[in-house]
Amino acid sequence: MVETTAVVVIGGLPINKSVAKYLPHYDYVVAADSGLHSAIDLGLRVNLVIGDMDSVDPAVLVAAEINGVTVQRLPRDKDATDTELALLAAVAHGSRQIVLVTSGGGRLDHQLGVLSAMQHKALKDCEVSALWDTARIQLLRGPGLCTIHGKVGDVVGLIAQHGDATGVTTDGLKWALNEGTLEAHSSRGVSNELVATTATISLAHGQLFVIQPNALEA
């Protein structure tokens, strides 16, 4: 199976169209239900639309199908969200870099569900990130290293997931850590700042969301 880069687009508020210029070179695009509208607005070539189709415009869906887009219709009553199933479809296709795109907004449980789905065990060997309205989010799993870019003074948040994040070392952030621990359910990692245009975060054990709230143009 050839490894690919996938973009997974989900529904929400009207999409920030400037997001398109932040996308990596991609091979495969999955739209979750009404994420099809956002994908079209971004000018993406969609390969698969997946979901229960309760929020996508039927006419837009039919047009996509006529144009060769694969449509996978799922029952409304199921044990996973359309977003989770779209991410799993990207993995099944062979994608090892997955960028989720969303405008955010909508129900809080849906938004938390998106962050949870990004950490699905089936994605453990994938590089997972999100372009979330004006934010860039990277999921860092230990042992691992990520590099971020921005302007001096830009805000960066480091949020532990699923237990403590240990062996955290940063370079290029105002409040540096050297083999430090960011405890689960702690706000210690919120509101750090870049002191250089490039910074690195390394992690020995655990998981971190590395969040740049204003990395993208509005």
Rank of each mutant, 00 (worst) to 15 (best):
W175D: 05
R96H: 10
G51C: 05
V30C: 00
A160N: 04
V19R: 05
R136G: 12
G206K: 10
V60L: 11
A59Q: 12
H149D: 12
T83L: 09
A86R: 03
V19F: 06
V210H: 04
V19K: 07
L203S: 08
A218G: 12
V29M: 06
L85R: 15
W132R: 11
A90F: 08
T102Y: 04
S103I: 04
L61Q: 01
L42V: 02
I10N: 09
A86E: 04
S18I: 07
W175H: 12
S202V: 04
D109N: 09
I211H: 10
P75V: 08
L44Y: 08
D133E: 13
R141F: 06
Y26L: 12
A31N: 00
L108H: 11
V128N: 11
G142Q: 12
P75C: 02
T170Y: 06
T200W: 01
Q212C: 10
G150H: 01
N47E: 07
L100S: 06
G163V: 08
E65Y: 04
V7E: 03
N47Q: 01
L208M: 11
V91Q: 09
V195Y: 10
D171K: 11
G167R: 06
G180A: 05
A59T: 09
G167L: 04
E65Q: 14
L182N: 10
R73K: 14
G106Y: 09
V30D: 00
H93T: 07
L48E: 00
Q161H: 14
I148M: 07
R45D: 13
I201K: 12
N178I: 06
G104D: 06
L182I: 15
I66E: 15
V101P: 11
R45T: 08
A20I: 14
T81A: 05
H205G: 00
L44T: 03
E183I: 05
M53C: 00
F209W: 15
A89Q: 03
T169Q: 06
S18H: 13
A176Q: 14
A117Q: 01
S103Q: 15
G106F: 12
A31W: 03
L216D: 10
L145R: 12
E179H: 10
G104F: 09
G104I: 10
H25M: 02
L44N: 00
L158K: 03
T4H: 03
F209I: 08
Q138I: 13
T197W: 00
A165G: 01
A90N: 05
L87W: 03
L85S: 03
G12K: 02
G11P: 08
L208Y: 03
L182P: 08
R188V: 15
G172V: 07
D79F: 07
V69C: 04
L131F: 14
N214H: 14
